[in-house]
Write a protein that binds this DNA or RNA. Structure first.
Lengths: 146, 146
DNA sequence: GCTATAATGAGAATCATTATCAAAACACAC
DNA sequence: GTGTGTTTTGATAATGATTCTCATTATAGC
C-alpha cells in the first residue's frame, strides 16, 4: 500500500472502532511509514519533538499497537521498537545490528517464504503452539558499525 | 554437551580468563541448563531465591553474557531473557508466546537449517550487514495460553 | 453553541536493570 | 596459618524507559 492509501485505511479502520485519528496519532503513523525499520519511542521523539510530547507519543504507540495497526519488537538493547503491522506494510523479516541496535527490514522471495512457512508450521505443531506469525531475525553489524 | 561437561567447559573457559567460577555463578548456569528456553532474571530469581540475591543474579548474568557464555534475547514484554550460548547448547530457534511471553527452543533439521543459512547470507549481503547469526522466531500461543 | 466523551500534556510513579561501596571470600606469598 | 592485594558479593541507591494520573483541551453529534 502507498502512504496515502495506508492513511485512509487506518482512518476507516479506527472509525469502525470509534477511535479518533488525531493529529498526533497521524504524525506517529507517518513517521513510521517513512522509517526503514522498527523505530523506538526515542527515535520517533527526535523526529516529532514539538509535534508530539513524549507521554502522548508513548500513549499513541500503545494505542495503535493495541488496535492492531502497529507491531512491537524488542531487538537489541532494552528499548521497544514499533513498525506498521504487516497487514499494512507487507510481511517481512528483520536485520538487527548487534552494535547499535538499529533494525532494518528485508523480504524473502515467495518460494523461500513458503519453505519457511512449512518449517514454522511443523515447529509450532511439535511444540503445541498455535502459530500466529513468524520472523527471521538476522544479527550482525550494520553498514555503519562494521 | 551434557550438564557435567558444560560445567567443566565453563570452568576452564573462565579460568583461562582469570574469572572465578563461584557458587553463585554456577547456580545461575545450572538453572539455565535445566530450563527449557530463555529465562528472565525474575524467572531465575524465583528458583534461586536465597541462593543468589537479585543484584548478584543480574551481575552474574551480565558477566557471563559479556564473557560469551550466555546469550541475551528480548521476546515479548520488556524483560531480558538469557540462555546458554549456542556453542554450549547447540544452534536452535525460538517459540515466543504472545500472551505470557514465555520462550521455548526448537531445532531445525540439518537440510532446513542449511536452506535457512543460504537465505540469511543473501539477505545480509543485500543489506550491507556482516552477518553474525540468525534466529527464526515463531510467535503464537503456548500450550497453557491457547 | 452545548454536552458528553475521548484525547492530550506535564509531571509523578513504576519497574527492570545498573551502579555504588563497604564487607566477605579468595589466591597466593611468606 | 597469617598477611596482602584482588575479586566477588550483597544491600541499597540511582537510572532510564515506560506507564499512570489528572486537570485541561479538543472532538463528534445534537
Amino acid at each position: 500500500m502507498k502512504e496515502r492509501e495506508i492513511d485512509e485505511t487506518i482512518r476507516e479502520y479506527l472509525a469502525e472502532r470509534d477511535i479518533r485519528y488525531t493529529g498526533g496519532r497521524r504524525a506517529v503513523v507517518r513517521a513510521l511509514q517513512i522509517a526503514a525499520g522498527p523505530q523506538s519511542a526515542a527515535d520517533l521523539h527526535q523526529r516529532l519533538r514539538r509535534a508530539v510530547p513524549l507521554s502522548s507519543l508513548y500513549r499513541s504507540l500503545a494505542m495503535l499497537e493495541e488496535a492492531g495497526l502497529l507491531s512491537l519488537h524488542h531487538g537489541q538493547g532494552k528499548v521497544a521498537r514499533y513498525e506498521l503491522a504487516e497487514w499494512l506494510s507487507g510481511h517481512h523479516h528483520h536485520l538487527v545490528c548487534m552494535e547499535c541496535g538499529a533494525m532494518g527490514d528485508f523480504e524473502l522471495e515467495a518460494t523461500a517464504e513458503e519453505q519457511l512457512l512449512g518449517l514454522v508450521a511443523t515447529a509450532g505443531r511439535k511444540a503445541g503452539y498455535q502459530v500466529r506469525g513468524h520472523s527471521l531475525e538476522v544479527e550482525g553489524l550494520c553498514g555503519s558499525c562494521r
